[in-house]
Design a protein around this nucleic acid. Sequence first.
DNA 1: CTGAAAGCGCTAACAA
DNA 2: TTGTTAGCGCTTTCAG
Lengths: 328, 328
Amino acid sequence: MARGFVTAEEVAKRAGVSRSAVSRTFTPGASVSQAVRRKVLKAARELGYRVNRLAQGLNNDRSNLIGVVGTNLSAPFISKQLDLLSIGLLRRGLQCLLLNAADARKDIAPLIELLFEFRAQAIVVLSGEPPSSIVDECIANGVRLILVNQRLDRTDTNMVLSDDSHGADLAALRLIAAKCQKVAVVSSASQTPAQVRRATAFTQRMQASGVDVVAWSDGPTGYESGYQAGCDLLRDKKIDGAFCVTDLLALGFLDAARIEMHRRVPEDVSVIGFDDIPQSGWKSYELTTIVQSLSTLTDNVLTALETDEPATRLQVVPVSMIERKTVR
Amino acid sequence: MARGFVTAEEVAKRAGVSRSAVSRTFTPGASVSQAVRRKVLKAARELGYRVNRLAQGLNNDRSNLIGVVGTNLSAPFISKQLDLLSIGLLRRGLQCLLLNAADARKDIAPLIELLFEFRAQAIVVLSGEPPSSIVDECIANGVRLILVNQRLDRTDTNMVLSDDSHGADLAALRLIAAKCQKVAVVSSASQTPAQVRRATAFTQRMQASGVDVVAWSDGPTGYESGYQAGCDLLRDKKIDGAFCVTDLLALGFLDAARIEMHRRVPEDVSVIGFDDIPQSGWKSYELTTIVQSLSTLTDNVLTALETDEPATRLQVVPVSMIERKTVR
DNA sequence: CTGAAAGCGCTAACAA
DNA sequence: TTGTTAGCGCTTTCAG
């Protein structure tokens, strides 16, 4: 009422046809004569009619809304992810209902519940782990759930994730090839599943080869923590190599090494990151890192969204190493 | 049908009350007896009932959806903006319908029209310029429109923007104080209104002080363009100062200056950016720049969203300069 | 091809 | 406080 959008009824009246004629005109596969269609279109244009998708969705149970939940949306990696995802959704005629889980620590369940209320057709979780009761509810209600870089121990959900352990392996192998004697693996206090997978895979491989690895983890997952790690590790311990589970950490580490601790990279210490964010390619860094293919990651999410199959799949997308200049 | 959400009717049946009793139980200010409320809540829990906000919105004409349109969502500045905005929206009980205008060049009108169809209560435009016919339609239909860092020549829309010209002024003054003789202003091919405002204000102030300014602009607004600018400008021209209309450009410029062109910054050339993105504070850069207060920018957007006033306002948020180490 | 009528899930005005 | 009734704007049978 307060809001002034024109309704199909008004258009119908003006065009001198029935309400359903209007509806048909705006429904892709419908049977309307050219004559009627023209009249309707004309009236609609004159009145400034806009289909009401909410009402539309109420009928056919398709809201066209895809819920996206994530944290820390301004971090380079996730923001790129969101960028690609939102473009892809739009291109497929789907709308992106974005819920920012401001606090990584907090449970994302309330957000997903909110998405239920909006009748989101599917939910893409970029960060945070949904409790299994929520996962059950998704399935019960026919809401497709897609977990990105998150592995749940169940077979009835879609998960698409990068091959973290293989990536960590590549990093370890490379550091071994560089003849590092004592290396560090740096992560953050958040200890997301992905981080843990990377760190443990790396550590295992290293120890299998008989090289010492010291673990560092503190603070949020960002540049500052990496910087702190660099200072800490390079001051006391005799580190000559580091694997940072995230590029942001690696970049901070790099700056600490070079600027604060006066080490040469890669001569004195080698460092490898994970993600390949844009900044890693910048001339001041040229970080050697493990690249997750964001585009295939996103493509997989999008197809998982569309496919009508018995929503059951675990998709691991391959990673590779890009050699730049931070490893000897 | 296909979708299996429980309806209020089913809950009512199970609780042995009327359909409206259920509705009331879930409506904040309603009159229901504790007894009924309890019964309803119990039944709802058992059945896994979730209010259908779409249907709800259909009634009271409040979709609770706020449309957000923007481009280049992975650029540091805008992604931070989106981060803050989406948090703020959620905190206020509003939902964020994100539309990524993949191509900056293209018209955002279709996106806004889509938002109309979803009956977005308000639309926040982070980038792109809405044609005036669309603005009219917003007003006609009671959809609040909020333009961020975009100035339209009308008084019936909300605009919140940073004080670009003052920022540019600060930059100019500082470069003059640094005794620069020949400076460059670097922007990109996009030439967004904000960029233009910055560049022209800077140029004017410089010329008023009798110092030469050469303008450079090409490519997208990013690190690479800045790098290119640095190479171009430092090779031929005898530049000893640069104002980059965006930090991303400035960072690229910096790398070009130091690494490719072997200049010392700030001894040989001074550079100032605009935005103060996180990377500008990183140890490898320590860029002196103009800071837009993203939080007050966002706060203003959010209040503009809520205020019931005659949607008419232009809010200019002040900027300041943060001195780091790239100006002599 | 077209209109009438029923219904999607919910809220609100009205009586009781 | 409660239930009944009438919509919100749209789609979709079902007759014609």
